[in-house]
């Protein structure tokens, strides 16, 4: 065997291991859902059961947390997407002093640990008389999710041909008509992708939410608290459902993205990099 093929097999072996490492924990966790054991594990296997789904279904705390998470994620989407779009439009238009500074400032929430965003939001809004809860969670999450939206929109804007705007303008369209009929339709795919990402990011956030949630509980907080106190495989059932939903979302999102990429013949990998935290 030549050294080249050893290298080739070596790297294949490594890739296989890597993906095993990536997926085995998730599979074990999912499998534990069906084990008829009080504690979530797969060893030893005490018989297959679906009762943990039933227990989850009857858990009013979970439903409450799910409702809160959905409200917060919807709120974040509504606030963060317009902010991110506005900032991307600004960055793609403005040429002059302070642009780099503003860009750095807009990126800074992504480079700040989530706990610090939570803490600073909590302190600031308490001084305005607002205490922790659903509203403050939306605000805190928006702080960094808007920056993700901004990056995604900016990536698409950078490929926009501005003579299209001039063309529409010279055909008699007003500034608003140009924006509404030319730029916005062009940005729409990126805005939709950003909305999906914003929703998911909000839904799964833990570190920031922990500090600003007040007495309200989100689904992620609920799972973490269950793991530490009162852990049963019902948590695994919830995890399994969330994983399945996520896979569905990810696959649909990715398929749509590739479809678009093929249509506009843009490299799919540079279009919008999925990021979460």
């Amino acid at each position: 065997m030549s050294s080249h093929s050893i290298l080739k097999w070596g790297i294949r072996f490594y890739i296989t291991l890597f993906f095993l490492y990536l997926f085995t924990p998730l599979i074990i966790m999912s499998a534990a859902t069906f084990n008829d054991s009080r504690f979530p594990t797969i060893s030893p296997w005490r018989g297959t059961t679906f009762k943990w789904f039933e227990e989850l279904w009857n858990d009013s705390g979970m439903w409450q947390a799910l409702g809160n998470s959905a409200i917060i994620a919807a709120g974040v989407l509504v606030i963060a997407v317009p902010i991110g779009v506005a900032c991307a439009l600004f960055l793609s238009t403005y040429r002059g002093n302070g642009k780099n500074f503003l860009y750095g400032l807009m990126l800074s929430p992504l480079l700040t640990p989530g706990v610090i965003i939570g803490i600073s939001t909590l302190i600031f809004w308490r001084s305005l008389g607002v205490s922790g809860g659903i509203f403050l969670t939306m605000i805190a999450q928006t702080t960094f999710i808007a920056a993700y939206v901004m990056l995604m929109i900016l990536a698409r804007l950078q490929r926009f041909d501005r003579t299209l705007e001039n063309a529409a303008f010279s055909l008699g369209a007003s500034h608003f008509q140009v924006f509404r009929r030319i730029l916005l339709p062009y940005l729409m795919p990126a805005i939709l992708s950003a909305a999906v990402i914003a929703f998911l990011q909000s839904f799964e956030n833990y570190n920031t939410t922990l500090f600003v949630k007040g007495h309200d509980t989100t689904l992620t907080i609920y799972i973490a608290s269950k793991v530490r106190t009162g852990l049963t495989p019902a948590v695994n059932a919830l995890g399994l459902i969330l994983i399945l939903i996520t896979i569905l979302f990810a696959a649909a999102y990715e398929l749509k993205r590739r479809h678009e990429a093929r249509q506009s013949q843009i490299n799919p990998e540079t279009d919008s990099e999925p990021i979460s935290r």
Partner: peptide, 29 residues
């Protein structure tokens, strides 16, 4: 401003609106 002048322009790269059909492009103005 440009959108109020009795001129219209044909651009070097043509700048046809890619998300509209041919008819929509022509009728845009």
């Amino acid at each position: 401003p440009a959108n109020k002048r009795p001129t219209s322009m044909i651009f070097q790269n043509l700048a046809l609106f890619p998300l509209m059909t041919v008819a929509e492009n022509i009728e845009f103005g």
